[in-house]
Design a protein around this nucleic acid. Structure first.
Lengths: 337, 337
DNA sequence: ACTCAATATGGTAAGGATACCATGTTAAGC
DNA sequence: GCTTAACATGGTATCCTTACCATATTGAGT
């Protein structure tokens, strides 16, 4: 790879002159410019962004730290992020933490070393460690998807508590009274919030005592296991509330295995849709989160912070969820007791 | 952000000594090391990878240039890439070209400026422009998912032609004789290859004349439009072969709109599954590509190249596809002619 | 003919880290 | 007590680019 010096030599000028041509700054004689441009294309010269970044302390690179790109919700978030970033000439490094705090910490360390201009973070844990790490090193960041309680940071997410509340409301209106919640890790804010919404909806109807909430992982396996466990309850639940799509898929598998038709035997509702693109004949009743918008707006917010460091109060952007009632939820069958 | 100089000053040593502590190289007095480590943690010092990269000409960063992270197939590829990369301490920048050659060129330019150590490329077009660009600048790369004909480059992909052949074979065995192919852009190698496999299977049974292949985009919209068009054929096809999952979804929507049940009225087969994780009750007959493995192996290959530049012949890794027969394909109904 | 501004180009240092060479100290070996 | 090797640390140049300052040339204005 050739450098600005090579170009300069070939064009018979100084590196500074080449630099001026590249950046269109200062005075350049027409002919000189032509000669330099000729040399550039002859050598296929591409300026070294590392050297530039070193000087300007700007890498035009953001980092997206999510739990798993494979989760369709985060896939869409990622696309929103990349679109918003590339619009402004920023690149995006993506990282999968799989909800591991250690992995997250390791990634953040590398990212800070690489001098990313900002981080979009889905915290693997509600503790403020990662946040503190970034803050100490003055790396701008936005937390997305999850709240971090008791900290003043920029956040973009949906109201998980309220979304869960809506789903449970819906089930209650259908007549369900035994609803089991299958959630993710208790330490993950969304998992906790969604159970909180579940509890609130039950409590409002005086059904607080009927609440049964399981915490596990946001994975298919975990959803499967929790569903199995919930099926042993007596009385058996008439509905499952899954805290995300993976859990829902696991639960559906467990139900199929147990020969319990949905929604006839048990209703299933969940957070997070499959991507619309993949749905020919959607089945699950869900609370849909505007994943693309979350990614996009978080990135916008982050880029705003970069261009205007001084800026103000932390902002919390809460995007609306949407309850989509489909065929996986129905009135409970009458008991044959 | 503090620098190695700050640490040196605080610890009362030279930057070189700090460097030695960080990299565990050369001789360091125990006490000195302790003082330096103390200073490092006191300042929250993180070494600047830009400066290092500038010296070593190594950024420990790869780029993944795909058409759309939102396509579940590429999502999984991306996960395979990131896993393999992070195992070796590499970060991954991802880019969505949406099959646009201009976007691709622009991305590659930026990536080269940023001195990525290597590129994993899904070429938006079968032309060798992008390849040539990277090669001239001596940026190692691996082409994935698609072949580039007549060029000696590292490639990792499935045999699209053969996969399509298998799907059509399956339809032929079921008794279909009017099969329409709905494909992507003719200039995209996979789109062309899949149609080629389709043609070969038909030709082998002396049905070459019945071939009807439409080229469009690898999108839901395009799949929808092509399906609509194909439905107007006379005689009407008894089966659709979609060249990817998006096209299949579009086709299925068109069929639903036309009140044509699948597979009773028309069978539908396609390339690329929905991710297994999202399937509770999978429906489509597909040729499955090992997306994760493609990403993983391509990255391995690329990293091998990095550590051993001298290396040899370009390699072409062709991974096996898997025909999965499900409910979207069945024997054609008898004509009421 | 002379001044002054506009035009045109180059040299140097800095950004942060480290390879390489140089120097200084300590302790072992005879 | 003196040589020699191991130990310990520092200075300088370099990776590539560009901000800043310096210098040189041209041409307009009087």
């Amino acid at each position: 790879m050739s450098t600005i010096h090579d170009v300069a030599k070939l064009a018979g000028v100084s590196p500074m002159t080449v630099s001026r041509v590249i950046n269109n700054s200062g005075y350049i004689h027409k002919e000189t410019r032509a000669r330099v441009e000729q040399a550039i294309s002859e050598l296929g010269y591409v300026p070294n962004a590392l050297a530039r970044s070193l000087r300007f302390k700007q890498t035009h690179t953001l980092a997206l730290v999510i739990t798993d790109i494979t989760n369709p919700y985060f896939t869409t978030v990622a696309r929103g992020v990349e679109d918003a970033a590339s619009e402004q000439g920023f690149s995006v490094i993506f990282c999968n933490t799989d909800e591991s705090r250690d992995d997250e910490a390791e990634y953040l360390n590398v990212l800070v070393q690489k001098q990313v201009d900002g981080v979009l973070l889905v915290p693997a844990h509600s503790s403020p460690d990662s946040i503190a790490f970034l803050r100490e090193r003055e790396v701008p960041f936005v937390v997305l998807d999850r709240r971090i309680p008791g900290t003043q940071v920029d956040m973009v997410h949906c109201d998980s508590e309220q979304g869960a509340y809506q789903l449970i409301q819906h089930l209650l209106e259908l007549g369900h009274r035994q609803i089991a919640a299958l959630s993710g890790p208790e330490a993950v804010m969304t998992a906790a919030d969604r159970v909180a919404g579940y509890r609130r909806a039950l409590a409002e109807r005086g059904l607080a005592d009927s609440a049964v909430a399981y915490f596990g992982e946001f994975t298919i396996d975990s959803g499967y296991r929790l569903a199995k466990r919930a099926l042993k309850l007596s009385p058996q639940p008439t509905a499952f509330f899954a805290a995300n799509n993976f859990i829902a898929v696991g639960a559906l598998r467990a139900l199929r295995e147990a020969n319990l038709p949905v929604p006839e035997a048990i209703s299933v509702v969940t957070f997070d849709d499959l991507p619309e693109s993949m749905l020919v004949d959607p089945f699950l009743t869900v609370v849909r989160q505007p994943a693309y918008e979350i990614g996009r707006q978080a990135t916008r917010l982050l880029l705003d912070r970069l261009s205007d460091k001084a800026a103000a109060e932390p902002r919390e952007i809460i995007l609306p969820t949407q309850l989509i009632i489909r065929r996986s939820s129905a009135a409970p069958q009458l008991k044959e007791t």
